[in-house]
Simulated assay, not measured.
Amino acid sequence: MRLLLAEDDALLADALSTQLRQAGFEVEHVENGAVAEYLLLRQSFDLAILDLGLPMLDGLSVLKRVHAAKPGFPILVLTALDDLESRVTTLNAGADDYLTKPFDFPELEARLRVLLRRAQTAQPAHGGGASSSTLGRLVLEPQARRASVAGEALELSPREWTLLELLSTQRDQVVTKEQINQAWSGEGDAAGAAGAGGGNSIEVYIHRLRRKLEGSGLSIRTVRGLGYLLETGDAARG
């Protein structure tokens, strides 16, 4: 049972991860909403626990985007917000359950298992989303981890693919170097994660991608002091 825990409170996340693993869950923890959205849309999980007050991208936005892409994917919202309006808004946005902090772990575990039973009796809806997507003349096939420009396949290393996919899913939004490093780490690229901390490493991969995207109708723009932005336009800038 693979579970994604999106929680920015480090102490709570550490304690909760330990309890969940002892209960038999395989836990992937992330600290911000941008990486949570990226992983939930591109990797296979059985369910998710989502805090609403996440940095970079708030939990409600993550919930709406994941629910739109994977309507049957079970998400339990865990939050300190206990007012009626927050509950109604969150449930209407696609949450399957809503639990307020503080909470007792046995209740959380019971609620998670209810969500799992519901998901198992329904058609699985968390297998990977759309089979392909098109941006300009770029075609991405997430399940096969392939990309092509005008019908010609791109030769991409694992880190190049992850970087391109992250930029495309966050198109027209700035992707920070922290998000890139976390995405590489989330892909299980231990060597990459260890060497990715320096900005120069990321810049090398950005440069390579710019060259490979020539003729795609897309460019990667450097937003100085913030990160990178994938946008329409043949000329790569920055």
Rank of each mutant, 00 (worst) to 15 (best):
M1E: 07
R2E: 11
L4C: 06
D9N: 15
A10W: 02
A13S: 12
A13Y: 03
L16F: 05
L16C: 03
T18W: 10
L20F: 08
A23K: 03
A23V: 07
G24Y: 06
E28R: 14
H29R: 13
A34S: 15
A34P: 00
A34C: 05
V35M: 14
A36D: 08
L39P: 04
L39W: 07
L39M: 12
L41I: 05
L41M: 11
L41C: 10
R42Q: 13
S44I: 08
S44H: 15
I49N: 07
L50G: 08
D51R: 11
G53Y: 03
L54V: 11
M56P: 00
M56L: 14
G59T: 12
L60R: 06
S61M: 11
L63M: 08
A69D: 09
P71F: 06
P71Q: 06
F73C: 08
L76K: 11
A80I: 07
L81S: 08
D83W: 02
V88L: 15
G94C: 09
D96W: 09
K101M: 13
K101G: 07
P102V: 11
F105I: 04
E107R: 10
A110P: 02
L112Y: 04
R118F: 07
R118I: 06
P124F: 10
S131D: 12
T134K: 13
T134H: 05
G136V: 06
R137N: 08
L140W: 04
E141L: 06
Q143Y: 03
R145K: 15
A147Q: 05
S148N: 00
E152C: 01
A153N: 04
P158D: 07
W161V: 04
T162E: 14
L163F: 12
T169I: 09
T169C: 07
T169R: 13
D172I: 02
V175G: 05
T176L: 07
K177Y: 05
I180F: 07
D189C: 00
A191E: 13
G198C: 04
N200H: 06
I202Y: 00
E203K: 15
V204A: 09
Y205V: 02
R208F: 10
L209T: 02
L213S: 02
G215K: 01
G217P: 02
I220Q: 01
R221L: 09
V223H: 01
L230N: 01
A236N: 14
